[in-house]
Nucleic acid binder design. Structure first.
Lengths: 352, 352
DNA sequence: CTGTTAGCGCATTCAA
DNA sequence: TTGAATGCGCTAACAG
C-alpha cells in the first residue's frame, strides 16, 4: 500500500511488474490477447494486496454507472417485494439497484432522493407514481435519465418513458361484481385519498362495476384516512341501514384487517353481515380470521416488464425471453401506460 | 452544454466568466471571501445551465463518499422500519444511506452487496448479524471500513466495532414467565433455526425463564421451519397431552398468526386452550383475532445508537444529544455488545 | 501482447 | 478575491 489507504491499480501494476493498462485489461476481462502468465501475475498481485476497484473512478472514466435508482413510498408489503424482485432482475443485466424510501408520500424526501440519484448519475430511474408535482419532476429529471413509473397515471410522455401499472380499475370492477354475485345489498368503498392515482383508479373501477345497479344498490365512497377505522365502519353501517350484507371494498389488506378487528369487537359477523375484499394479498390475509379475499399483485411480471423496458431504453440488448416479453405487452399499450391484470383470491371474508 | 451531455463546472465557470475554482468555492459555500457579485453570477449560471454536481467526481476528489451502507435480510416488517429510521438519522448528519436486501439470509447475495458497497467506498457499514462466515467478513471488510452490526452475537471485535442488539434472551425469559403466571401448564418455543443468533438468544432466554420450573413443567423447543405450521401445532399438542393451557412462544408474529389460523381451523380456543406470544409487534398483531401478545421493537433507540456510534467512529462530531446517548449506553456494554430491552405488549392471545 | 497518455468532473493548494 | 495547476483512480485509444 502506498499512500493514504487502499491499494490502487498502480500498486497492483508495480507489484505484478506490468503497466496499469494491463491490469485494467485483465480486471475487465478485455478481449485483447494477453499471456496467461501476465494474467496470473496480476491476479496474484490483486489478492496479495487486497485490491478492490474503486467504482467511483471507474464510473467517472466510463461515463456510465451501471446503477439504477428506485424510489418507493416505503419498504413494507408490496413495495418491498417489488424492490427485491426488481433488484434481482436488473442484477441479471449486470446493474445494481439503489433503493430509497420516501417515507410515505413526502414530496420533499422524494425530491431529495431523486436529486441524489441524479447526482450519482444513475443510468435509469424507476419510481412509483410520484407525490411531487409533474412540473418539479420534469424540471429535475429532464431528458437525460430515462424514467419508468409504476402505478402512476396521467404522466406526460415527455417526462416518463413508460408507466407499468396494475389495473386497479379493472380489479375494482371485479370486486364490486363479486359482492353483487355474493348477494350484497349495499356496497362501500373504503379508500385513502392519500393513495392518489391508485385511489382514483379504484373509484373509477368501483363505479363501473356497479353499472346499472348503481341506482338500485346502496353504495358510497368513504375516505378511511379521514373517518378513521371506526368511523368508516359506522358510516358504512349507517348508510346501509337494513340493506345487508354490506360489501366493503378496501384500499388495501391492512385496512381490511383493521375493519375486521372492529367488526369482531362489535359482534358484526363476517361474512354474514359484512363482506370484505382487500388489495395486495399480504401474508396476513391468508392467516387472518376469517381469511380475507384480496387481489394478488403480479410483482414478478411487473418488475420483469420494468427491467426489460429500462434495459432496452438504456441500450442493453435483450435476450430472447425479454424481447418476447416486450413484444407481447408493448403493442397493447394505452399511450405509454401499460396495464397488468390482478388476480382475485377468494377467501372466507366473502364466502359463506 | 459542451460535450456529450451534462454540464460541468467548466461550463458553469465559462458561462459565469470565472474560474472553476471559484465555482467550486461558491458551490461548497467555502469560507474564503468572495464578492456577492461573483456568487450571484455563478448561481445564475448554475440554474441557467441546469448544472448538477457529479458526486462520483466529487467523492473521488474528496476521498470520502459521505455514504453509508445498510444490509438487511429483507425489506419487510422490523427490518424495513429499521432502514427507514436509520436513513433519517444519518441524513441529519449529512450522510446518505444505501439499503440492500440480501433476499433472506443468502450469504452469496450478502457478500455481493457488501463487496459493492466497499467498492463504492462507503464511509461506514451497518448490517444485521450476517449469514456469511465471520472469516469471509473479516477478509472482505478488513480494517478499512467501520462495521456496526445489529442483532448479531459473538462477532469478534476486530471485525465489528459494535453490536447493537435487542435483548431477545431477556424478552424470552419474560415471555415464559408471563405464560407461567397465566397458568400455562406446558410451554413450547416455536423457533426458526434459520433465525441464527436471534434464535439461539431466544432459546437461551426461554430456558432461563423456566428456571426450576423446568422439571415440573412440560416444555419443548420446536423448529417451525422444519415441522411446518401444522406440524408444529400437532407436535405441541402431542407433547403437552392433557397439560393445558399450552403457552406457545413463537420466533415472530408472522409465525404466531399462522399458528392462530390453524387453531381456528381445528377449533382450538385461544387463549383458553393455547396462549400465544409473538415477537416484532407487527401491525397485524394488534388487529388479528384475537390480538397477539408481542414484543415491541425499539427501532428508534436502536437506530439512534447505531447512527451516533458510527458517526463518532467516522470522525463526525456529535451534538449534545447524541453524545449523551452514547455516554449513557456505552458504559453498560458487554464487551462490544450492547443490549436493548424490549417491551412486552400484552393482548388477548394471553389474557382471558 | 504491453506500455504511454490523455481524459472523466471536481477539490484544493499555492500564487498572483 | 480569483485563477492555474495538480491529483483522485481508472478507462480507452493509440503506439510500440
Amino acid at each position: 500500500m502506498k499512500r493514504s489507504k487502499q491499494p490502487t491499480i498502480v500498486d497492483v501494476a508495480s507489484e505484478a511488474g506490468v503497466s496499469i493498462a494491463t491490469v485494467s485489461n485483465v480486471l475487465n476481462r478485455r478481449k485483447v490477447p494477453m499471456s496467461p502468465e501476465t494474467i496470473r501475475k496480476v491476479e496474484e498481485a490483486v489478492v496479495q494486496l487486497g485490491y478492490r476497484r474503486n467504482v467511483m473512478a471507474t464510473n467517472l472514466s466510463r461515463r456510465r454507472s451501471y446503477e439504477l435508482g428506485l424510489i418507493i413510498p416505503h419498504f413494507g408489503g408490496y413495495y418491498g417485494r417489488f424492490a427485491e424482485k426488481l433488484e434481482q432482475k436488473v442484477h441479471s443485466f449486470g446493474y445494481h439497484l439503489s433503493v430509497f424510501s420516501a417515507a410515505g408520500m413526502d414530496p420533499v424526501i422524494e425530491k431529495r432522493h431523486l436529486e441524489h440519484l441524479l447526482q450519482r448519475r444513475v443510468d435509469g430511474l424507476v419510481s412509483h407514481g410520484l407525490a411531487m408535482s409533474m412540473q418539479s419532476t420534469q424540471q429535475l429529471v429532464g431528458e437525460g435519465t430515462p424514467l419508468v413509473i409504476f402505478n402512476g397515471w396521467g404522466w406526460p410522455s415527455d417526462i416518463v418513458k413508460l408507466a407499468v401499472n396494475l389495473d386497479f380499475a379493472k380489479a375494482s370492477t371485479e370486486a364490486v361484481q363479486h359482492f353483487l354475485a355474493g348477494g350484497c345489498r349495499s356496497i362501500i368503498y373504503a379508500g385513502r385519498r392519500k393513495g392518489m392515482g391508485a385511489n382514483e383508479q379504484r373509484i373509477q373501477g368501483f363505479m363501473e362495476g356497479l353499472g346499472d345497479k348503481a341506482k338500485s344498490t346502496v353504495h358510497a365512497l368513504l375516505d378511511a384516512g379521514e373517518l378513521g377505522i371506526e368511523g368508516t365502519l359506522e358510516e358504512a353501517l349507517r348508510i346501509s341501514g337494513e340493506q345487508r350484507p354490506i360489501g366493503i371494498y378496501t384500499f388495501n389488506d391492512a385496512l381490511a384487517l383493521e375493519l375486521l378487528a372492529v367488526c369482531h369487537e362489535r359482534g358484526i359477523r363476517v361474512p354474514e353481515d359484512v363482506q370484505l375484499i382487500g388489495m395486495d394479498n399480504e401474508l396476513f390475509s391468508k392467516s387472518s380470521f376469517p381469511s380475507i379475499t384480496s387481489f394478488d399483485m403480479p410483482v414478478e411480471l411487473q418488475t420483469r416488464l420494468v427491467a426489460a423496458f429500462l434495459m432496452r431504453q438504456i441500450g442493453e440488448d435483450l435476450d430472447e425471453e425479454n424481447t418476447q416479453l416486450l413484444d407481447e405487452y408493448l403493442p397493447h399499450i394505452h399511450g405509454h401506460e401499460l396495464f397488468i391484470d390482478l388476480e382475485m383470491i377468494v377467501r372466507k371474508s366473502t364466502t359463506t
